[in-house]
């Protein structure tokens, strides 16, 4: 399974914002870096299929050899993590994890318990997400995404709102959990890029080191 951006170009009012032509292999973490406003989040929005109508996109996106350029977000099978955890406030921790698990999955409870355990949250399935710490919530959000069995992972500055100490932990945890997936990380923090350990590019495809 690999994620290929085939001559992906995004323009706004004729001005080029993003230009990427590359393939992310399974298990590779590609980092897109740049200051805020440079179009990093726009690139992610395009890859996941939620580009605001003000932008124009050309090129193709392939996931596992399939062209998903015109596939709606909910059928794309790409996991997405935001700066904030965006846990659903009306559901319990277990309910949030269950939301990610595809319907018809056997042994749902066992899978959820397993995910909780992997996140160091044994037995906390019934808890209100609002009562968890920031780091715990971030781990639940990651496990929720992984339970949906994505074929690629997109990370939109997911560590920037965590405390410095938690950040290292969460980076290690995230990259360990995502080890088999093609992953694109968007960040302005060079430490994130170093921890990811892969190529580092700008949104126009130039290499940054």
């Amino acid at each position: 399974m690999s994620l290929q951006l085939d001559k992906l170009r995004i323009t706004q009012d004729g001005r080029e914002m993003v230009s990427l032509d590359l393939t992310v292999a399974a298990g590779e973490v590609l980092t897109l870096m740049g200051p805020s406003g440079c179009g990093k989040s726009t690139a992610l929005a395009a890859i996941i299929g939620a580009l605001p109508p003000a932008f124009k996109m050309t090129g193709h996106i392939h996931l596992g050899g399939k062209d998903v350029t015109n596939v709606p977000t909910f059928k794309r099978r790409m996991g997405l993590l935001f700066q904030d955890d965006v846990l659903f406030p009306h559901l319990s921790v277990g309910g949030n994890l269950g939301f990610g698990l595809p319907r018809g999955t056997p042994d749902r409870d066992a899978r959820i318990a397993e995910a909780l355990s992997a996140a160091g949250l044994d037995g906390m399935g019934k808890r209100d997400p609002a009562t968890l710490s920031g780091g715990q919530r971030a781990r639940v959000a990651l496990m929720r995404t992984l339970l949906s069995a994505p074929h690629a992972l997109l990370l939109d500055e997911p560590f920037s709102k965590l405390d410095a100490g938690l950040r290292d932990q969460m980076r290690a945890f995230t990259f360990a959990q995502a080890r088999d997936l093609p992953t694109i990380l968007v960040t302005h923090d060079i430490e994130d890029a170093r921890a990811a350990g892969g190529r580092v590019l700008s949104v126009t495809g130039t290499s940054i080191s």
Binding site: I48, A50, P72, T73, F74, K75, R76, R77, M78, G79, L80, F82, D84, V86, F88, F99, G100, P102, R144, T145, S148, P150, L154
Partner: peptide, 11 residues
């Protein structure tokens, strides 16, 4: 973003 998160989870 809650809607986008849910879509990305396959909803």
């Amino acid at each position: 973003r809650a809607g986008l998160a849910a879509s990305a989870l396959g909803a």
